[in-house]
Design a protein around this nucleic acid. Sequence first.
DNA 1: TGTACATCAGTGAACGCGCGTTCACTGATGTAC
DNA 2: TGTACATCAGTGAACGCGCGTTCACTGATGTAC
Lengths: 234, 234
Amino acid sequence: MTAASIRARVRAEMTEEIKAVARRHLAADGANLSLRAVARELGMVSSALYRYFASRDELLTALIIDAYDAAGAAAERAESAVDRTDLLGRWLATGRGVREWALENPHEYALIYGSPVPGYRAPADTIGPASRVPLVIGGILRDGFASGELSAEPPAEVAEPVPEPVRADLAAVVEQIAPGAPAAVLARGMTAWTQLFGALSFELFGQLNNVVEARTEFFEYQLRAVGRLVGLRG
Amino acid sequence: MTAASIRARVRAEMTEEIKAVARRHLAADGANLSLRAVARELGMVSSALYRYFASRDELLTALIIDAYDAAGAAAERAESAVDRTDLLGRWLATGRGVREWALENPHEYALIYGSPVPGYRAPADTIGPASRVPLVIGGILRDGFASGELSAEPPAEVAEPVPEPVRADLAAVVEQIAPGAPAAVLARGMTAWTQLFGALSFELFGQLNNVVEARTEFFEYQLRAVGRLVGLRG
DNA sequence: TGTACATCAGTGAACGCGCGTTCACTGATGTAC
DNA sequence: TGTACATCAGTGAACGCGCGTTCACTGATGTAC
C-alpha cells in the first residue's frame, strides 16, 4: 500500500468518524446540528472540520445521504431474504425492515422523513439514495405484474380509478421503478408506500402516544391491510 | 366596558399579535424560533415578551395548540357541509379540508406533524386540540356503524383481522372517538387517518418532488382508495 | 539512499454575529376611599 | 370628584452563553530527483 493510499484511508476513516459523532448529535439538536459541538467531542478545533466538509450544509447532506442509504439497505436486506414468489411476504419484510431501522435510528429517520430543515436545500445527489426503498417496492410490483398475481384491476371491492393526470405522472415513474407494470398497479403501490411512512411517522413523532400502545401489532395490521388493497396475497 | 376589561382585551390582542408574528417566523426558522427576532419585528425589546409568555417553550406550546385547533376547525368546517348520510363524501371533505389548511400553513403543519422539536416536551393541553381531526373521522365511523353501512366486517377482499393487543388498545379509544363502533371499524379508520397524514407529509416534506406533480389528483385518489378500504361507499 | 520541496491535517485567534432569560427601572393606567 | 396607591406594560443593560466561517500558521508526512 502506497503512502498516498494510507493517507486516503486515514482521511476516509476520519470522515466516517465525524459523521458518526454528528449522527449522535442529531439526537440532541435535531437538524440544527452544531459543527463546534461535533468538533469539541472529537477533541478538535472547529476549523479542522473544514478539511473534511466545506460547510455545515455539506455535512448535513452527507448525513442525509447516509440515512437514505441505510434505510434502503435495511429494506433490501429484509426483502431479499423472502421467497421471490411470496409477494405479500416481501412487502411485509420491506415494511418491517424499514421500521426496525427507523426505531434504531429515529433521528436519522426524522432528518429524512420529517420536517424539511429550514434554509437547507437538498442537492441532487440525494435522489438516488432516496429511491432505494421505492425501488424495493417497485420490484415487488414488477414481479407481481409479471406473474399475473397483480393485475391492472385492483381487488373488485376497492377498485378506484387512477385519475388521468396521475396516470401521466406515473408513466414516467414506471420506467424507473417497475418497468412493464401498468400505472394502476404503481398507483396502488405508491399508496402503500405512503401508508408505510405515514405509519412510521405517526409512531416516531408521537401521534400514537396514549392512543395505541401495541405499536408492532398495529404497524403489522396496517401493512397487511394496505398490502391487500394493493392486491398482494399471502 | 370597565377599564379592567379594556386592559384585558388589549392584552389579548397583543398576545394574538405576538403569535401571528411568531407563526410567520416559523417559515424562516422552523421550530428553533427566535424570541428576539419576534420582538424585533414587533418593535419591542425582547424582555417585553415575557409579559405575555413565560418562556420560549410556552410560546411554542401556544403555537402548537393553535395549529391543532386550526387543522381541526378546517376538518370540522369541511365535513359538516356534507350530507350526513354521504359517508364517503364526509371522509373526502375531511381530507380535503385538512389538506387545504396544510397547504396554506405548511410551517404550522410541520410544527405539529413533522419531526418533534428537540428538547421540547408537549404539555397535556395539546391533547384536546390534537384530537379534533380524529374526532371528525370518528364521527363518520360512528354514524356509519349506526346506519349499518359500516359493518364490523370489512370489504371481503381486503378483510384483515385486527390483532388482539390492538383490539385492546382500541377498546379504550372507541369510547372517546366513536362510541359504539367495534374495534375493527376503528382500526380501519385509523389506517385511513394514517394514510391521510402520510400523504400530506409526503407532499409537504418533498418526497413527491420529481415523482408526482398532479398533487391534488393523487391525494384525492389516495383518499378514495383508503376510504374504500374502510368500507365507505359513495 | 538522501535531501529539498510540496502537500495536507490540524491549531488558535479573530470576526461578526446570534440567542434566552433576569432584573431594576419608568411611567402610564386603573382602583379604592 | 379628587387623590393616594397598586398594577402592569414595556425599557435597557447585563449575564453567560452559543454559533459558522476565515485566515495565517506549524509541523508532520509524503514525493521527486
